[in-house]
Each structure stands twice: as C-alpha cells, then as structure tokens.
C-alpha cells in the first residue's frame, strides 16, 4: 500500500530520482588560501598538470583530484614542503558511484596542516574492475587502519599496505557491505537455522 518495493528504500516513501554528482573543475581564482596551495604545489611539483586531474572548490573547501599513479609523490610533497606542510591525514573515506563508469570507486583523503591551519582534500578515483590505489601508510602512518576499513567496506585494494585485512567485519565475510550494490540487510543469521528477511521485504514496510 505504501512506499515502493525493490529499490532497497526502507523509509516508506521512495520514488526518489537521484542525480549523479558532478565533478567539473573550478576556475581560478579559487579564493581564500586555495590559490596559494595550488601555486605552491605547482612550483614544488613539476608534473602538477599530469598528476592533478581537476581542482574543485565547493562549499568553501578545496579538493584536488589526483591521478593514482602520482598519488604518493603528491602526498609526500604536501607533507614535506615547508610552504604546504600537511602533517596530518585524517583517514580515508570511500565512496561508491556505480553510475560513473570507469571511475566507480573514490577514495577521499582529508588533510590537515597544523602549521598553517589549513585543510585540503585529495580525491582518487579508480574503476571497479581495477580497484588498486597505492597505500599512503608510508607517508602518514595513521592511515593504516583507515585503509583497512576502506578495503573492508568498499573493496579498494591499497597496494603496498603491509597487512591489508578486514578490520570491522569478520575475516570470512563475503562482499564489501558499504558499496551501493550491497543490500542494507537481509543477511542470513547462521546461528539459528532461520533467515531474517530484508528490511524492505518485511511486513511493516510493504
């Protein structure tokens, strides 16, 4: 009677049309301290144009879309160059965009420079068929668990990570639960012989 079936939408209303997010590049001047960061990075890193696919300024935040081959070089310069000095990487957040063919999986790294009190975001996108990104644990050791989590939840493989195993889900779990093609619920409970129907299949949601 209420809602829709089959879309995994359990909120009872459904029927939403989702528009894919765009990632067009921003034009200079970027405003705030963003121009300085871009200039400093360009000066310190001659291959800037190869490495940075797009520079996006949105909601008062600067995002650099980085080519995965160059990610480690860019990260090292961002950390070590005295003008940039992003000493801290605040983890990795995976995002799955099934509609963006060829770049379905994104890894987002928020960076923080305590010296200059600035923030910056790096974003790397890879195709679902080849989900490899070089690890940044060598650069920011604190990324260790964050990369394991992103592997666990999205199946992004961080090449060079010393112990890339599941961290939150049990070791023998099948699938990567936070991808968009993974259902919200309805995972059989193996301890009872019974199954739990998916939330969208339950009586109260129909």
């Amino acid at each position: 009677m209420f809602g829709v079936n089959g879309s995994g939408d359990t909120s009872g209303f459904g029927g939403l049309v989702r528009v894919g997010s765009s990632s067009g590049s921003s034009e200079r001047p970027y405003g705030s301290y963003f121009d300085e960061i871009a200039d400093d990075l360009e000066r310190a890193y001659p291959e800037f144009n190869d490495a940075i696919e797009a520079v996006v300024v949105q909601n008062g935040e600067l995002t650099l879309h980085v080519n995965r081959e160059k990610l480690e070089d860019v990260a090292r310069i961002l950390r070590d160059n005295p003008k940039l000095q992003f000493e801290m990487c605040l983890g990795v957040s995976g995002v799955h965009y099934p509609d963006q063919t060829g770049r379905e999986l994104h890894a987002v790294y928020p960076l923080l420079s305590m010296t200059h009190n600035r923030r910056l975001r790096l974003e790397v996108s890879v195709p679902d068929s080849d989900p490899h990104i070089p690890t940044l644990v060598e650069v920011w050791a604190g990324n260790n668990w964050h990369e394991r989590e992103t592997f666990d939840m999205f199946g992004i493989i961080f090449d060079g990570h010393a112990g890339l195993t599941r961290i939150l889900m049990p070791d023998d779990w099948a699938g990567h639960p936070q991808r968009k093609d993974y259902p919200l619920g309805g995972i059989p409970v193996e301890f009872h012989g019974a199954t739990v129907p998916a939330p969208s299949e339950r009586r109260s949601y129909r």
Binding site: L16, V17, R18, V19, S21, S93, G94, V95, H96, V108
Partner: peptide, 11 residues
C-alpha cells in the same frame, strides 16, 4: 550528497 533527500554517503 547527490541532490536527493537522503545522504549518499556519510563517513
């Protein structure tokens, strides 16, 4: 956000 009424991803 993808422009909808629900988050696309919250981390």
């Amino acid at each position: 956000s993808d422009g909808g009424t629900r988050p696309y991803r919250v981390h």
